[in-house]
């Protein structure tokens, strides 16, 4: 139940004095309360948990991880070689906790 899922904000509107929005998750659109993220704009990616947007996803930070991978790959060392990866297992789209 603690899952938080990133999705794209596609609509914003006021309803019963609450800021609500529609967020698209890979084709599925859900009703989301936007009261905690009043600064979000249509087109933004937001993180949604139990029907509430709790954070805006920072596009500029989203790529940072790949630079980090480049960096730690350069590290030298003499530790043991990693086991081969079962590549197929990484492909699941799944829920994204």
């Amino acid at each position: 139940m603690c899952l938080g899922i990133p999705g794209k904000l596609v609509e914003l509107r006021q309803q019963d004095e609450l800021m609500m929005g529609k967020v698209e998750f890979g084709g599925i659109v859900k009703e989301v309360c936007m009261a905690y993220l009043p600064e979000a704009e249509v087109g933004d990616y937001v993180l949604v948990h139990v029907g509430f947007a709790i954070s805006r996803i920072d596009e500029s930070e989203a790529e940072e991880i790949f630079r980090y991978v480049d960096e730690i790959e350069q590290l030298s060392g003499d530790a043991d070689e990693p086991p081969a990866l079962r590549a197929a297992e990484m492909h699941g789209e799944g829920d994204g906790s």
């Binding site: 989203a62 480049d70 790959e73 530790a79 990693p82």
Partner: peptide, 24 residues
Amino acid sequence: MKYLSEYRQPAAVQRCVAGIHRLV
């Protein structure tokens, strides 16, 4: 799905794992 699948890329995972092995 954006912001999910790119963080599951096998090649990047493999490289990150290799880095960890060298560091410990």
